[in-house]
């Protein structure tokens, strides 16, 4: 099933590099990031704070904050059979839309919900205001907002966090984009509401044939939702593959350590496995593999190895050069 898709990536990111120049000292929060996004999949970008996952997403969207610049790499998107460089300014709101973490601050507080959702119809597709509002109400129903007619006149602050996130999803759908970039869409929500929103994303993806990139720090959310996962550490992707495979049999020591640190939903409360040390200061990253200073399997070559994702099995790539980990990957 994957074969057919593999040949037609929707988005190809190659060697993406993002820099911040602060008082003359340059840090690279996103470095040599390459991945492909297949039509119709949900890809998870997972990592801890500062791993570069959100900036990667913002670079795709062309929404890097001031002072943060993409200095290298290419992003290309497919339209029909042609791959062409992605122009975020043009693609934003047409083929791709973003769902932000904090709907409380991402929604314009001065506009009614129906106008927020209607705007893409009016601006992007030239639909008349009344018709656009009717479409907005229909979308509100589609994303599971109860009493959409009544709620459509509300302002964002009058809605709960869960409803605001549904409004944001409706706004993204209103652009008629088929690629949704989601930045921690459920992190600010309670667990029962998170469950609802994740379910909504699964349904919408199926009904509307969407492709999703999901940035999150929560490995369990990735496991629930994503077909494939890319694990980021200190600005680089260290492992990618099918989510179930990666989580069952990690092919990089960082992925393994991260998985071991998550409290499992199982009886018994022993000590959790921790990762010694802390993520490197981006102003002063270790040479070679950036995880080597915290890695219990590190050996000499790790200090000089270049960063390269190696195929170890179908769909499975790891940046680790340690034979034991590569063997594990191949064994899958």
């Amino acid at each position: 099933m994957v074969e057919g898709r593999m040949s037609k990536p929707l988005l190809i990111v190659e060697d993406l590099r993002v820099e911040i120049n602060r008082h003359g000292s340059i840090v690279t929060p996103v470095d040599e990031v390459s991945f492909e996004l297949q039509q119709g999949e949900i890809l998870g970008l997972v990592g801890e704070s500062g791993s570069g996952k959100t900036l990667t997403l913002k670079a795709l969207m062309g929404l890097l904050p001031p002072g943060v610049v993409q200095v290298g790499g290419s992003i290309s998107s497919r339209s029909g059979d042609v791959l062409q460089p992605l122009d975020p300014e043009k693609a934003r709101g047409r083929i791709m839309a973003m769902i932000f973490q904090e709907p409380a601050t991402a929604l314009n507080p001065l506009r009614r919900v129906r106008d927020l959702i209607a705007e893409p119809f009016i601006v992007g597709h030239g639909v008349a205001r009344n018709e656009a509002r009717a479409k907005a109400v229909a979308l509100m129903r589609a994303v599971g907002i109860p009493d959409p007619e009544q709620r459509s006149r509300a302002y964002p602050h009058q809605l709960s966090g869960g409803l605001r996130q549904r409004v944001m999803i409706a706004m993204a759908l209103a652009t008629e984009s088929t690629l949704l970039l989601c930045d921690e869409p459920t992190t600010a929500l309670d667990v029962t509401i998170q469950d609802q929103i994740l379910g909504l994303l699964v349904e919408l993806k199926r009904e509307r044939d969407l492709t999703l990139v999901l940035v999150t720090h929560d490995l369990a959310v990735v496991s629930e939702l994503c077909d494939r996962v890319a694990v980021m550490y200190a600005g680089r992707i260290v492992e990618t593959g099918a989510t179930a495979d990666v989580f069952a049999n990690p092919g990089h020591p960082y992925t393994a350590a991260l998985l071991a640190a998550v409290p499992r939903f199982e009886p018994g409360g022993g000590d959790l496995t921790t990762i010694g040390g802390s993520p490197p200061d981006l102003r002063n990253v270790p040479s070679g593999c950036r995880f080597r200073t915290r890695c219990q399997y590190a050996f000499e070559e790790c200090a000089t190895a270049g960063h390269r994702l190696t195929h170890v099995a179908d769909e499975r790539q790891t940046a680790c050069i340690h034979p034991a980990w590569i063997e594990r990957g191949v064994a899958i």
Binding site: D195, V202, A220, V221, S223, E224, L225, V262
Partner: peptide, 24 residues
């Protein structure tokens, strides 16, 4: 019960939009 089944778990994939608990 709803709270417990709403918790996302590693190794369990969500395949439907069904939620453990409706409403807020």
């Amino acid at each position: 019960r709803a709270l417990l089944s709403a918790v996302p778990r590693i190794g369990v994939k969500k395949t439907s939009g069904e939620a453990a608990l409706a409403g807020e």
